[in-house]
Each structure stands twice: as structure tokens, then as C-alpha cells.
Amino acid sequence: MRAAVLTHFGAPLTVREVPEPEARGGEVVVEVLAAAVAPYAAEVFGGERNYPLVPPVVPGIGGVGRVVQAGPDATRLRPGDLVWCDTTVRSRDDALTPDITLQGWSSRGEGGARLARYFHDGAYAELMRVPTENVFPLPAAAGEAPARWAALGLHVIPYGGLLAGGLAAGETLLVSGATGNLGSNAVALAFAMGAGRVVAPGRNETALGLLADRFGPRLRPVRLTGDEAGDRAAMSGAANGPIDMVIDLLPPSAPSSAARTAAMTVREYGRVVLMGGVGMLGGADLALPYPWLMRNSVTVRGQWMYPRTANVGIIRLLASGALDLAPERVRSFGLDAVNEAVAHAAAHRGPFDRTVLTPALH
């Protein structure tokens, strides 16, 4: 089969023939119809993000595909089934604190690295081998537009954060990083889950305008200036009431002060969920004040990725139409154009811009 291979960091991906995977017990082989190209993929492949990928590797973060072969312990999956392949692979020998690898993308700790050595290759290939528990049936509608449905992988991440924070219908959410690709997904998801209003701070006025045009008066845009006190007052004022929850999805390039300013708008007994990359490339710590946290009974939670059940939930939101993918701008690339796709994703990283690789579609 053909696959796009990262031979070493800083080099373009190379499309070449590689051995076809085979499903063993607890595994499924899927023909990859569409896989999202993350806006920061070029930073990963260039080595700027210091991800623990071990070249040579087929990268790629999950995908839409059809089952080719299922292991002997699969009881419901059949060849030809249309499915979503979740990139978040968990070890099976510790239910309480499983090791995690993002197949073809990243991992956590030595245990995650061991897992990555086995589930090494990701979705930028005609075929992909994944754990059975990472394969989720999709509705027939996804087969009509697999490239559009590939955005599922970019929505399920903030969805996991909203679930972790317990976002409830009617609540006010502040999305720190709302003008970015993942942040704008969090905005769309919050409304799909019934949020009363969403405060969307950012520096990009064009992106703020796109959000306001799509979601109307329940979306409260705030243009940030970099002044902590002034920005905090502006965000609090835009909410027109208490902010129940803050989710942070800022990238590694953002200063910790931006995350802190947003977090400290939350009400007493409010919740803050941290999912972004602040501090991953160095810089100052978040430094939330101890007295403020304690006396306001604020809950702060870190959340990396999402639980398995989030895949089922996000598919339901999409299938029901509660989360609408129609307004999104999708650009598809064949496997041979993988480097063009990576460059396109880097140049189109704003709200609802999607870049997709279609390995098995010729």
C-alpha cells in the first residue's frame, strides 16, 4: 500500500510503498477515506513542537474509513462498515491510569512511548491498523462526505473539555483561544450543547466577525489588547452576567498571562478547564493566585484529549444536525499532495477552515 512517511524531522513527507497492516486479536484494519490535517502539522513535522514521534513513521490523527478486516474478537464490526477511527489509544492493562498514545502523532511518558512503538503509524496511508475499541460506526451520511466528516477529530478534542467541565444548558462559557481552529470548534460545540451564551475573546477581528456572523447575539466577541486588567473587565462585561465556565485552548505560542486573564473571569464556584499548549515551549507558569482559587472555590482541571465515550457523543451531535458541518470550508488533497496539504493547513488555520487528506480516494 501507499503511505506518507515522515523520514526525519524537518524533511518533507515522502509518499512510498509500505507493507500492508494485518489485524490481530483486538485490532481492525481500515481503508482510510479521509483524515484531517491539523493546522500545526508543519510545526510537528518540522520538530518545532518537540512531539515524541519516532521516524520513520506514518503520521496522521484519526480518520473516516471502511473496515477491511476485523480481528477474531470483534462481534459487531464487519468488512465494509463505515467508521470513525479515534487516534487516542489507551493501554489495556491499567483501567485507572492508562498510558496514552495519539496514534501517528504523540504520546505521554515511557508507557505511552511503548504503546506508540506498537500502534506506530497513523492515518496518512491507504490502510491503517487500529485497536478495535477505537473504531466507531458512522451514519450513512458520512459516506457521502467523508472529507467533511473528518473534522470530527478536531471537534472531539474540545468536546472532551466541555464534558470535563460539565457544561450545562443555559450556562455562559468563555472560550480562551476562540479565534483558533480548536477554539472556534469549542464555540460551535457549546451552542450545540445548549450554552446560553459564549464569550469569545481574541485579537483577530476578522475571525471574531466570522464567529459573530455565524452564531448571532448569543456570541459575545471581545477584542483583546494585552492589558490583563482591561481585558478581564472587557470579557466579564461582555458576558452580561456570571461566567460559569472557562475552557482554555490557546496554542503554545500564547503567553501564560492570556490564559490567566481568561481563567480569572470565572464566577465563584465556577470551573476552568485547561486543554491548550501554554508553556509547552517554555515561558512563565500560569500562576493563578492561591487566595483567589481558595476563597472563590474555583475548580481548575487539566484535560488531555477526551474519554472514549466522547466519540459516541460527538457522532450523535453530528448525525442529529445539532452540530452543523455545512458552513465549514473544506479543501481536500490526495495522498501524493500531502506536503501541499500540510502547507495549506498552516496557511488556513482560522475558524472552520478544514484541510483533509484522502489517501484511499483516487
Results as ranks from 00 to 15, higher is better:
residue 296 N to G: 15
residue 47 G to N: 13
residue 242 P to R: 11
residue 187 V to P: 04
residue 239 A to V: 03
residue 333 F to V: 03
residue 214 R to D: 04
residue 85 C to N: 02
residue 307 P to D: 10
residue 5 V to K: 09
residue 331 R to G: 01
residue 53 L to M: 15
residue 222 V to N: 07
residue 40 Y to Q: 04
residue 349 R to D: 10
residue 77 L to A: 08
residue 104 G to L: 04
residue 317 L to S: 01
residue 1 M to D: 13
residue 51 Y to K: 06
residue 157 I to A: 01
residue 66 R to L: 13
residue 319 A to T: 08
residue 246 V to W: 05
residue 199 V to L: 09
residue 2 R to G: 11
residue 94 D to C: 05
residue 170 G to E: 15
residue 21 P to W: 00
residue 153 G to C: 09
residue 148 R to I: 08
residue 312 V to S: 12
residue 345 A to P: 09
residue 292 W to K: 06
residue 20 E to M: 05
residue 302 G to D: 11
residue 311 N to R: 02
residue 220 R to P: 02
residue 192 A to D: 08
residue 235 M to K: 08
residue 312 V to Y: 14
residue 79 P to A: 12
residue 163 L to V: 15
residue 191 F to D: 04
residue 268 E to I: 09
residue 54 V to M: 13
residue 280 M to N: 07
residue 169 A to Y: 01
residue 240 N to R: 11
residue 94 D to R: 09
residue 326 A to C: 14
residue 74 A to I: 12
residue 247 I to A: 13
residue 94 D to N: 10
residue 49 R to P: 11
residue 146 P to I: 15
residue 226 G to I: 03
residue 99 D to G: 11
residue 148 R to H: 03
residue 209 G to A: 13
residue 283 G to V: 12
residue 118 Y to K: 12
residue 334 G to M: 00
residue 227 D to Y: 03
residue 362 H to R: 14
residue 243 I to K: 00
residue 289 P to E: 15
residue 84 W to K: 01
residue 157 I to T: 10
residue 122 G to N: 11
residue 165 G to W: 15
residue 99 D to K: 00
residue 75 T to K: 04
residue 179 T to D: 15
residue 348 H to D: 13
residue 249 L to R: 08
residue 141 A to F: 06
residue 185 N to M: 10
residue 158 P to I: 03
residue 237 G to I: 05
residue 110 E to Y: 03
residue 152 L to C: 06
residue 239 A to M: 09
residue 86 D to Q: 13
residue 79 P to G: 02
residue 23 A to D: 07
residue 139 P to N: 11
residue 19 P to T: 13
residue 158 P to K: 00
residue 273 V to E: 02
residue 106 S to A: 14
residue 125 A to N: 07
residue 278 V to L: 13
residue 320 S to G: 12
residue 147 A to Y: 05
residue 267 R to H: 07
residue 313 G to C: 04
residue 80 G to I: 11
residue 153 G to H: 09
residue 261 T to Y: 00
residue 56 P to A: 05
residue 31 E to R: 11
residue 91 S to G: 12
residue 226 G to A: 05
residue 175 V to N: 10
residue 253 S to M: 09
residue 97 T to F: 15
residue 357 L to I: 15
residue 259 A to L: 15
residue 160 G to H: 06
residue 258 A to H: 00
residue 214 R to S: 05
residue 272 V to T: 14
residue 189 L to R: 01
residue 13 L to H: 09
residue 261 T to P: 01
residue 256 S to F: 06
residue 151 A to S: 04
residue 166 G to M: 15
residue 97 T to S: 11
residue 41 A to M: 15
residue 286 L to G: 14
residue 1 M to N: 07
residue 71 G to A: 03
residue 142 A to N: 08
residue 315 I to L: 12
residue 173 L to P: 05
residue 291 P to K: 01
residue 229 A to N: 00
residue 231 D to V: 08
